[in-house]
Design a protein around this nucleic acid. Structure first.
Length: 225
DNA sequence: ACCCAGGTGGCCC
DNA sequence: GGGCCACATGGG
């Protein structure tokens, strides 16, 4: 079994299933992915609740929304001036180019969708991959700051650098091609970092132990790859 | 009163 | 290609 899979099993056993992404619809995943950029999920929930209560959690509604109104609704998620423009722009794109039909939008090759998402203002690699993986059920591993942090604390030589593409390549190369594993693993890494690494390492309660350097019950770092 | 949060784009060299 | 910066609310 690969080192990556051992880490996954350890986290899953310790924390249990995370049931990500926390959203009712694919569109809600897209909205949340944009709003959660550099922002705690708690604040994003408030913004999404505001959108729901206003009947604005809808592609066309946001595409046609008054910018000031949109700003007020998503204000709790921070960067609200930027995010309102970006969120509206993405919705306008989905409405104009895809008639707001996400089934059609996702019904093609991963690379085509990813290129299109990355061309939109306000969607970078992590947001694009979150949308692809959790809204589109595509086989692509989401890398975020937590994933990079974890990777840098593990003695994994196969990761070339602490850069997005290298970290992502590692997981792609060392995990079974299983959508469930991809989705759950990323969620577990977030759970791990929120519970154990926030505000300084909490290695006393971390299931990977000692800043993750001697994890998995004494597995020899020399055999890691 | 700090520090951080499930990033991104713009600018500079 | 890399290094800095602005963006903003809310919780520990």
């Amino acid at each position: 079994m690969s080192t990556a899979m051992q880490i996954y099993n350890t986290l899953l056993e310790h924390f249990g299933r995370q049931h990500w992404w926390p959203a009712d619809t694919r569109f809600e995943v897209i909205v949340g992915a944009i709003l959660t950029q550099q922002t705690s999920w708690r604040n994003v929930e408030k913004a999404i609740d505001n959108l729901k209560e206003a009947g604005m959690l809808d592609t066309g509604a946001i595409a046609d929304a008054d910018l000031d109104h949109l700003e007020e609704l998503i204000r709790p998620s921070g960067y609200f001036k930027q995010k309102s423009i970006r969120l509206k722009g993405v919705c306008q794109h989905l409405k104009d180019e895809w008639a707001a039909d996400l089934d059609e939008f996702f019904n093609r090759g991963l690379d085509d969708i990813r290129t299109e998402l990355l061309s939109l203002h306000g969607i970078g690699k992590e947001t694009a991959d979150s949308i692809l993986n959790y809204a589109g059920d595509k086989m692509i591993f989401v890398v975020d700051a937590y994933t990079v942090r974890l990777s840098s604390r593990l003695p994994i030589k196969a990761i070339e650098s602490a850069k997005y593409d290298d970290v992502q390549d590692f997981f792609h190369s060392n995990l079974p091609q299983d959508l469930y594993v991809y989705q759950e693993f990323h969620a577990l890494i977030v759970k791990l970092c929120v519970d154990c690494c926030r505000s300084g390492p909490r290695c006393d309660i971390c299931p990977l132990k000692t800043a993750c350097s001697f994890f998995l019950g004494g597995l020899d770092p020399a055999q890691l790859s």
